[in-house]
Write a protein that binds this DNA or RNA. Structure first.
Length: 483
RNA sequence: GGCGGCAUAGCCAAGUGGCUAAGGCAGAGGUCUGCAAAACCUUUAUUCCCCGGUUCGAGUCCGGGUGCCGCCUCCA
C-alpha cells in the first residue's frame, strides 16, 4: 500500500515518493531554548516521532534532523532579565528539553544541531545569497530581498502584494521592502556576536537571523533538496516560507518535497502558547499523568486537527489505555488455557493490514488506535470463550508490536507470580514492593475464606487507594496497577 | 482587510461519492460474581451547523450563509 502524506505546499494528500528511495531525509524545526517546553511542543515532537517510527516500520532509511535554536532575541532578552549569560540560559533549557523528550519516550534525532555551532555554514549561505543578488547589506545587517524571489508565498498561499506588512509593528526604514527579512543582524555592544564580513569596512560583529539557521543546517545535513520538512502550523508563515526563499535562492534547486505541519494543542478552544500564558509545561503534566497517557491522548486525534487539552480528556485517555493493559493481563492469566477457536494468522494479518492502511493515510493514528481497540475486543472475546492462550499471546504480541509503532506499550515489564498458577506482567516503572501486595492479598483471601467480608473489603479499598486494583476471579485473586 | 482550517451522538473522535455513519469515554440494561471490579453482550446520531445545487446516489463535491479557530508579530 502506498503511503500518502498531506503536503502543505500543494494542499493535498500525495503519494509519498522519496527523492532517493529507500533513503529519506527529514528536517523538523525544534525549539528555541529560553523556557520550559509545554504540551504544544510535545505534540510537535510526538507527531514527527510517529512519522519517524512509521517510516522506519515501512522500511525507509531515514535521516532525521531536528535543530535547536540557541541564539535569538528571546534568549537574549530573557537572559538579560535574569541577569545571566545568554549561553548559560540556552544551555540550561536545552538540558531541560532533552529531559522532557526522554521522559515522553521521544528519541533523539540522528542529528540535533545547534545554531551557534553552525555559524560558518550560516554565513556561507548568507554570502551565497548576496552573491546571487538576493540579499543586500545595510550597516552590518543583511536582508533577504523578497521581491527578487518570484515564487515567494507559494507555501503559505500568500501574495506579497496582499500582505499588510508593518500593520502591527514598525517597519525598518532601511529595508528596501517591508517584507524583506533579516539574514544577519549586527550586534549591539554586550550582545552575543560572531565575526562577520558585513558591516564596517573590514567586517563587523553580528548574529544570525532566525530563519537562516534552518536553511543552512537542513541542507548541510540533508543536501540542497530533501524529502520532508516539518513543524507546527504556526511556522508556515513566515518561518518556512522564508526558509524556502533562502534555500532555493542560494542553491537554485528545489528545497523540500513534502511539507508537513501539525495542528495546535488548545485550551478552552484557544491555542496554547507562551504569549497567551495558557500553557502547561511537560513537566507539570508528567507529575499528574504517566507519559504514555499523554502520548495516547495526543495520538487519539489526527496530527493535523486541533486538540483540546483538559484534565477530562486526559482521564478518558487513561481509561482507554487501561483497557489494553487489562487485555494483556488477562491473556497472561489465561496461560493454561486450551486450544480451540484461535485467531488464525490470516485474521491477525487483517488487523495488521487495517492498521497499516490507517497509518498509510497520512499517519491517521486515531483510526489506527481504533484498529487496536478492535483487536483487543476480539481478543477479550476469544479469551472469554476459553481459547488457546498460545494464539492469544500472538494477539497481544501484535497489539504491542503495532502499538510500538506509536510508541505505546513499550515499558519494561516483569512477571509476578502468586501461588502456583497465577502470574502477571507488571510495568516495572510502576512497580511497588510486590511482595507486600502479595501478602495483603493472601491475608485478604484468608478473611474471605472465613467470610469476614468487612476485613476483606477494607484491604481491597486501602490497596485501591494506593493505586492497586484487586479482582476476585473464578480462577483466583489477581491484582494490577491502575494505569 | 488577505490567506488557511474546523463544525459528525452527552463528551472525545474516525470517515471525504455508494453495503446497516469506525473506535474510545460516559450512561442504561444484561451475563458473570459474596459484593465490587474487569471482561463480554445489548442499547445510546433515520443522521453528520443551516440553505440551495450537482449526481441514480453526498456527512463526503460545488455555491451561499452562520459560528468557532489559526496565520499575516515571537510562537510547535
Amino acid at each position: 500500500m502506498p503511503l500518502k502524506v498531506y503536503n502543505t505546499l500543494t494542499g493535498q494528500k500525495e503519494e509519498f515518493k522519496p527523492l532517493h528511495p529507500p533513503k529519506v531525509g527529514m528536517y523538523v524545526c525544534g525549539v528555541t531554548v529560553y523556557d520550559y517546553c509545554h504540551v504544544g511542543h510535545a505534540r510537535g515532537a510526538l507527531t514527527f516521532d510517529i512519522i519517524r517510527r512509521y517510516l522506519k516500520y515501512k522500511g525507509y532509511e531515514l535521516t532525521y534532523v531536528r535543530n535547536i535554536t540557541d541564539i535569538d532575541d528571546k534568549i537574549i532578552q530573557r537572559a538579560a532579565e535574569l541577569g545571566i549569560p545568554w549561553d548559560e540560559l540556552a544551555g540550561k533549557y536545552a538540558e531541560e528539553y532533552y529531559k522532557d523528550m526522554q521522559a515522553l519516550g521521544i528519541a533523539k534525532a540522528d542529528y540535533e544541531p545547534f545554531a551557534t555551532k553552525h555559524i560558518a555554514d550560516i554565513q556561507k549561505v548568507v554570502q551565497q545569497l548576496i552573491d546571487n543578488g538576493y540579499a543586500y547589506e545595510v550597516e552590518g545587517d543583511v536582508y533577504f530581498e523578497v521581491r527578487k524571489f518570484t515564487t515567494y508565498g507559494k507555501l503559505s498561499g500568500r501574495n506579497p502584494d496582499d500582505m499588510r506588512s508593518g500593520a502591527r509593528i514598525e517597519v525598518d526604514q532601511r529595508k528596501r521592502d517591508p517584507l524583506d527579512f533579516a539574514l544577519w543582524k549586527s550586534s549591539k555592544p554586550g550582545e552575543p556576536s560572531w565575526d562577520s564580513p558585513w558591516g564596517n569596512p573590514q567586517g563587523g560583529k553580528g548574529r544570525p537571523g532566525w530563519h537562516i539557521e534552518c536553511s543552512a543546517m537542513s541542507t548541510r545535513y540533508l543536501g540542497d533538496s530533501f524529502d520532508i520538512h516539518g513543524g507546527g502550523k504556526d511556522l508556515i508563515f513566515p518561518h518556512h516560507e522564508n526558509e524556502i526563499a533562502q534555500a532555493e535562492a542560494a542553491s537554485g534547486k528545489p528545497f523540500v518535497k513534502y511539507w508537513i505541519h501539525n495542528g495546535f494543542v488548545q485550551v478552552d478552544q484557544e491555542k496554547m502558547s507562551k504569549s497567551l500564558g495558557n500553557f502547561f509545561t511537560i513537566k507539570d503534566i508528567l507529575v499528574e499523568y504517566p507519559a504514555e497517557v499523554v502520548r495516547f491522548f495526543l495520538l487519539k486525534t489526527h496530527y493535523r486537527s486541533p486538540i483540546d487539552f483538559s484534565d477530562k480528556h486526559l482521564e478518558e485517555a487513561k481509561r482507554g489505555l487501561e483497557r489494553f493493559y487489562n487485555t494483556f493481563h488477562d491473556v497472561d492469566l489465561a496461560f493454561k488455557g486450551h486450544v480451540d477457536k484461535a485467531l488464525s494468522i490470516s485474521e491477525l494479518d487483517t488487523y495488521r493490514e487495517k492498521f497499516e492502511a490507517a497509518m498509510d493515510d497520512d499517519f491517521n493514528t486515531a483510526l489506527a488506535i481504533g484498529v487496536l481497540f478492535d483487536l483487543a475486543r476480539h481478543t477479550n472475546r476469544l479469551l472469554r470463550d476459553n481459547d488457546s492462550s498460545q494464539s492469544l499471546f500472538a494477539n497481544v504480541e501484535l497489539i504491542k508490536e503495532l502499538g510500538g509503532v506509536l510508541g505505546l506499550f513499550e515499558q519494561e515489564v516483569i512477571r509476578v507470580t502468586f501461588g502456583a498458577n497465577v502470574s502477571m506482567s507488571v510495568n516495572v516503572k510502576m512497580l511497588k514492593p510486590e511482595e507486600l501486595v502479595a501478602l495483603l492479598v493472601e491475608d485478604r483471601n484468608k478473611a474471605r475464606a472465613n467470610k469476614n467480608w468487612a476485613s476483606a473489603d477494607a484491604i481491597r479499598k486501602q490497596l485501591e487507594e494506593l493505586g492497586i486494583i484487586i479482582e476476585d476471579r473464578p480462577e483466583g485473586t489477581i491484582w494490577r496497577f491502575k494505569v
